[in-house]
Design a binder for these strands. Structure first.
Length: 183
DNA sequence: ATCGTCATATGAA
DNA sequence: TTCATATGACGAT
């Protein structure tokens, strides 16, 4: 066979209201599949699940987690996340990102090194861009090696704002190095 | 300091 | 296989 068909999976779309606008959470029967910024639209999913197919606790945990991140506070408990659409490598990167503490920033190269693939910084960046659950999987805490913002699927404005919320200072100039907020 | 170029891993077409 | 990436290191200017 040449290619696999587009892996459209059945989901339920839930709107999550926040002070920053309405996010959209997509749940499969296995957990949270995708989190979309206000105004973003999903693809690769099929809205065929019913409300009864998704436990209310998942929605509650997701809502609380999103709102805590937007408030710059630690997330208490995350909902189950369905990352089955990711490749093994992507799952490892996403897992590593979840270990970055609030208030700190890592880099694509550091994560690559943590995965024992010191040359795979660029691949890590690509995996970050494929992160289906921003905020809860804190890809915004990953900067370039020189402290530059790098990129962000939801837009650099979001990345900058999220980091500021967590007390991570970034310089407007590209020549700057990463600065941490901690004393 | 800024720019161009190359090396390198992964994934989609 | 070819092309595109949310990189990083190096050398020339």
């Amino acid at each position: 066979m040449k290619t696999n068909a587009p892996p459209k999976i059945p989901v339920l779309a839930i709107s999550i209201g926040t002070v920053e606008g309405d996010f959209t959470a997509l749940f499969s029967s296995q957990g949270l599949v995708n989190l979309l910024f206000p105004g973003e639209k999903s693809r690769r999913t099929q809205p065929t699940l019913k409300r009864d197919d998704v436990p209310a606790t998942w929605i509650k945990k997701t809502t609380e987690a999103v709102q805590k991140v937007l408030a710059g506070r630690k997330t208490a408990e995350l909902p189950p996340m369905d990352l089955s659409l990711g490749t093994p490598f992507q799952k490892r990167v996403w897992s590593a990102m979840q270990q970055i503490p609030l208030g700190e920033a890592s880099s694509y190269g550091k994560i690559a090194t943590a995965l024992e693939m010191p040359k795979a910084a660029r691949a890590v960046g690509a995996a970050c861009g494929a992160n289906p659950i921003p905020l809860l999987i804190p890809c915004h805490r990953v900067l370039a090696a020189n402290g530059a913002l790098g990129g962000y699927s939801g837009g650099l404005d979001w990345k900058k704002r999220l980091l500021a919320l967590e007390g991570v200072q970034t310089r407007p100039n590209k020549t700057a190095k990463t600065v941490f907020s901690h004393p």
